[in-house]
Design a protein around this nucleic acid. Sequence first.
DNA 1: CTCCAGGGATGAT
DNA 2: ATCATCCATGGA
Length: 287
Amino acid sequence: MQSCSVRASHFDLVKTLDSGQVFHWEKYADGFVGTIEQVPVYVEQRGSTLKVSCNGAEQSPGRVIRQYFALDHPLKKICASFPPDAAMNQARDFCRGLRIIRQPKWECLATFICSSMKQVAHIRQISRALRQRYGRKLIICGITTYDFPGAGRLARASEEELRVCGLGYRAKNLLATSRRVATGEAHLEAWNALPDDELRARLCELPGVGAKVANCVMLFAYERIAAFPIDVWIERVLRQNYFARKRKVTPRKLAEFAAGYFGEYGGYAQQYLFHYARLMKRRADPY
DNA sequence: CTCCAGGGATGAT
DNA sequence: ATCATCCATGGA
């Protein structure tokens, strides 16, 4: 096992892992256990330092962590680029240190196909079930974890078998997309070279992938930082704050507004608005 | 445009 | 305690 310290300024591990962009990290001791590709990882934050342990990384643990958590993103510059309205200012203040991480492409795509019309707690359960049933067993700090199964492994499963993992009607879509990726008909790595619009079009051809899921995958796995996924929460935020008492605002109109208003780091703005809205709802009750 | 497809966490009572 | 609502939606 390798251990090391990684300097991480302008970074909040808890906010980053709890913001609905990644679903498999589990709280353990003072940190989290999870995987990065096939590497089991334990990570905990002490101030502006990350204490990291991992098993069998080809590159140095520090490199892996800096890449995965996008510690090179210019967060101060990104936050300074946000439009200066009240909603955005509150979200930026609340989400200080939240970064958009670089996820493995297949894992991200598969997970967000499973996310449709599910709550975050459900998505976490599905992710755990798929990993336990189809992933490789890995040990870190005496804790058992599992990597995310490759498309080839899931392509060999049956729809009924996948339904056992709690996927419901999504099983059919995950299976169909797994097969396209496994055969190479959909070459996720090669799509890295495509411009945003073409990449979005390719992703939307996959079963279970519409504009929203495509934008999530672009943002969380292809580092297309301007991509702006619009889910139920973000739609509420946009309508309340930017289209107050206006009728007949179509989804297309919302998307066009978001693309123009939030700028080149729109994906970050979206993530901050999403996380702020979701956590406010969770606490805004006792009174 | 509408309607529907798991199911469990979460909230209401 | 039970019951209703909600959900990082896509497809028909």
